[in-house]
Each structure stands twice: as structure tokens, then as C-alpha cells.
Design a protein around this nucleic acid. Structure first.
Lengths: 202, 202
DNA sequence: TCAAAAATGGACTGACGGGTCCAAGATCGA
DNA sequence: TCGATCTTGGACCCGTCAGTCCATTTTTGA
């Protein structure tokens, strides 16, 4: 008995996850299950049939998001100058992380750290950490090819991620400025890439 | 009727704030007022006499912390090579931000974003933003003196803060690795300072 | 010394929300 | 077609907490 007739028929679990993210973006981590159900056009019981508890639901939300972001980052990546590749990475990172939905998930995960530490940790590994690791792989290759001088690629990747996200992630998590124009994204991406290249020039 | 006899006699408000931070570090943002009162050796009513609500208490916690950190960062700062000054800044930043207490306050502020946005925003301005601004002041001077080439000091300051904290802050907020040995702090501080110098060399 | 102000503790209310139950539909697979 | 399975809605139980009340004690300051 779908409430919204003209909608694409997402599998129910997707709909629930989407609703959970949206509701938490609006009401914070303690958003009631009842409202998530309503938003998903589904009964509360159905959610409990799919995910046994709110904690399970939370974990599922976060994992899905992490995979989405990491996949996007691991996009084709045609052979280009390292500076281009870095700028591209930065662009994607900013666009996928600095927005209401990602923030909602981060906040939820962080609030949960005290009560369900394994979940929060898993999110860190599957999200930011995995994404930096894949950047580190790229840097390792560039280093071997002599296009960069980068003895500790993982650290360099973490530095780059920090430069790009640092300010915006903190601000967004604290509710100051969560919108970023394309121009801003572009400017930050290019500047960060350029500075990084100088810092790690051969 | 102090419960702990041999203790230094902190003013009651300080004791409450300390207790609030500790309890939230253990139980998360939704820690009950009753436990905070118990920990502070004070009655619940007394807390409500000092701070009218939990939100007020939260704001007071965060503001005190922000001021502590920012003051520490704005320490004397003898005239030194810019690289030394940057490394010193990084050291202090890591030590004051990457620890259970600061994390507890961040998590609380973030969880509160949905329900009390002004508070969260104020924390951003008084904390990370203010701290970067003071670093930017330093960079501006170095730029004028021709020791760095840094046309946008605030952006550079944000980049530096991101490099230093990026990984550790995210990991700590998500409950992975909140301890950092002195050696690690030192290594990260020096590497970040050195890379930054290259990135912004004249 | 003593009254005013602050603190105590412990009982209490009221809201909220996680999670369960269940009887009545709706869907689906063979 | 028909039973098995899933969904629905809505009542319901129960624990948890913010915030209040109040009668009593403690602290303070003049």
C-alpha cells in the first residue's frame, strides 16, 4: 500500500535507509523510529523486520554511505598529471562529504561512539580511512614513477584529505556553512592540489 | 557538604563543568543530569540554579573549553623561525584537541546541531575558527616579512590545521585511536610544519 | 549571632521514544 | 488457487530523563 504512487519503486530497504538519513538530517541522531517509518511510507514493524534495532539501522545507513563515497572516489581516473588527479579527488571529496546527508550520518556515528563503539569504528574504517588509503595507493605509484617525492604516502594522503576537508567538515558538522558553491569547490580543490604538489615536489 | 574532602576547592561552577565533561565523555551527549550532579558532588537542583537547562550547561562547557584551547594556542611565542612556530602550534593543537574531553564536547555540540543550532555555531566560531584566525595573523606577518609566500593567510591556516588534525580528529571522534604518544605528536608536528614551509616557500 | 540565601535530597510529573504484540489485510510463490 | 509470508496500524508496556517542588539543613555575610 504505497503512499506515494508515482514514485520509482525502490526496494523497501533502500527507501527505509533514505528516510532514515533524511529524518536524522532534520532531527538529529535521536530521531524517532516512528517518523522514519512514516517518511519511508512503511510501518514501524516493517523496519524492525528488516533491521532488528535502531543500532542495526544506523550501521546500515553508515555502511551504505561509506561505500557510495569510496566508490565515487575510486572512479576511472584516466591517466593525467598528478595535480589534475589530486584536484579531481578533492572535488569529489568535497562534494560527497560536505552536505547535509553525510553530516547527518557523521553526527549519528559520533553520538553513538559511547554506546556502540564498534559501529563507529567500523564507519571510520569503511569511510575516511578507506578513502585515504586509495589515495595513498595513487601517491605510491607517483612516487615510484619519480613524479613526486613522497616517502610516506599514507601520511601524505591524510594530509591532503585534511587540507581539503578540514575547515569545511568541521564547520558543517557544527552547523555553520554546509553549502559550498561549485566555484568554491573548484578553488579549494585547485589550490590544495597545487600546494600539495609543491610540498611534495621531487 | 563536599564529598571528597582532600580536594582543591574549585568553585562550584567549575566542578559542575568538569563533571559534565567527564560524564559526557563516558556516556555520550545524552548523559543524564543526575549523574553529572552526583559526579560533581552537588545536587541536581544546584545545577539548575547555576544553569537553567541542559542546553545552557552544554553551551557553558563548550565555551570554557574553546577559551582554554585558544588561550593555550596564543601562548607567548618567542621570536623563532616560522617552521618552529608552526610545529609548536601543531603540537599544542594535537594535545589540546585529540583527547577524550575535547572529543566529548565536540560530539555533544554536533549532536546538538539539529536542536540548538546557535549553540553549535557559536562553538565553531569560538573554537576552531578563532584558533585558525590567530594562526592566520601569524602567517600574515611572515608573509609581509617575506619569509613566506602566502597570499591568503586564512586559507593557509585552515590548510595547516587540516593537515595536522585531519586524520586524528576524525578517528578520535569516531572512537578509533584517541591516544597519541608524545613521539607521534612530535613527528606529525614536524612533518606538517616542514611540508607547509615547502608549499608556501617564497 | 542570626537572618537571608543557597544547597540538599528525594520524591514526583510528564514527555518521549524504543521495542513488542496482535488481528486484519495484502502479496507472492508454486 | 491457496497457504505461507510479509505488511499494516495502532494500541501498549516500560525505561529513561529533563525539569519541578519542597521541607530541611548548611553557608554566608553583616
Amino acid at each position: 500500500m504505497p503512499r506515494v504512487a508515482g514514485q520509482i519503486d525502490l526496494s523497501k530497504t533502500e527507501a527505509i535507509l533514505d528516510a532514515a538519513v533524511d529524518v536524522m538530517a532534520e532531527r538529529g541522531p535521536q530521531a524517532p523510529m516512528e517518523e522514519i517509518a512514516r517518511r519511508a511510507g512503511v510501518s514501524k514493524q516493517t523496519i524492525y523486520n528488516h533491521y532488528g534495532s535502531k543500532a542495526e539501522l544506523a550501521r546500515a545507513m553508515a555502511e551504505r554511505r561509506a561505500h557510495q563515497v569510496v566508490e565515487t572516489l575510486a572512479a576511472p581516473g584516466a591517466v593525467e598529471r598528478p595535480e589534475e588527479a589530486l584536484a579531481a579527488y578533492a572535488r569529489v571529496l568535497l562534494n560527497s562529504v560536505v552536505n547535509v546527508r553525510s553530516m547527518a550520518i557523521y553526527r549519528m556515528a559520533m553520538a553513538a561512539t559511547a554506546t556502540m563503539p564498534e559501529v563507529a569504528r567500523a564507519i571510520y574504517e569503511a569511510g575516511p580511512r578507506a578513502s585515504r588509503r586509495s589515495l595513498a595507493d595513487f601517491l605510491r605509484v607517483e612516487n615510484a614513477a619519480g613524479r613526486l617525492s613522497c616517502p610516506d604516502p599514507l601520511q601524505a594522503a591524510e594530509f591532503f584529505g585534511g587540507m581539503v576537508l578540514g575547515r569545511y567538515q568541521t564547520a558543517a558538522l557544527l552547523g555553520a556553512q554546509i553549502e559550498l558553491t561549485d566555484d568554491e569547490v573548484e578553488a579549494v580543490a585547485q589550490e590544495a592540489a597545487a600546494r600539495f604538489m609543491r610540498a611534495y615536489a621531487v
